[in-house]
């Protein structure tokens, strides 16, 4: 199983420079997905975080994790995801274990704790090579266009 960036763009609403998944390398529909993000040293945020000592901001690791969670949602509720609903990150409990540097490749693995049509809870691990750099449990809400119109 391999999903390229075009396939990912058909699922996620985010676009560069705020798209933090390059490819999806493993999919167990409704159970888990594994995605990758190569951290090009030319990425803009490295210039300011921090000058002379570039590390990936934790907030962006969270974003990469959340986007992986949405890919998992797509594999679980494709009939909803294909309508391009709005997604809202509603909570996250994250632990950072190690810094992430330019030229690293983030490996993001999301597991379904509980996903339903209107949202989900996912557990996500971020690794560089075999080293865990962050873990999280996040929840997100899914608002379909139909529900928006009803408001």
């Amino acid at each position: 199983m391999h999903w390229d960036k075009e396939k990912i763009k058909s699922i996620l609403p985010q676009r560069e420079p705020f798209l933090f998944i390059d490819e999806v390398i493993e999919v167990e529909e409704g159970k888990r997905v594994v995605a990758k993000k190569y951290l090009d040293p030319a990425l803009d945020f490295f210039k300011g975080h921090f000058p002379g000592n570039p590390v990936m901001p934790g907030a962006l690791i969270i974003e990469a994790m959340a986007q992986t969670g949405l890919i998992l949602y797509y594999t679980t509720k494709p009939h909803i995801a294909k309508t391009h609903p709005d997604y809202y990150l509603t909570s996250i409990n994250v632990t950072f274990k190690s810094p992430v540097y330019p030229k690293d490749t983030l490996i993001l693995e999301a597991h379904n704790f509980k996903i339903v049509e209107f949202g989900g809870v996912v557990d996500i691990t971020a690794k560089v090579k075999d080293k865990i750099v962050a873990t999280s449990r996040s929840t997100f809400a899914v608002v379909t266009k139909k529900n928006q119109d009803a408001k």
Partner: peptide, 23 residues
């Protein structure tokens, strides 16, 4: 407890008792 927390409660019960709670 909001709807997101309700999902987490449901998931925790499912994992503990190895059951599936219908959506």
């Amino acid at each position: 407890v909001d709807s997101m927390k309700a999902i987490e409660i449901t998931g925790a019960i499912e994992k503990t008792f190895k059951i599936i709670i219908p959506e």
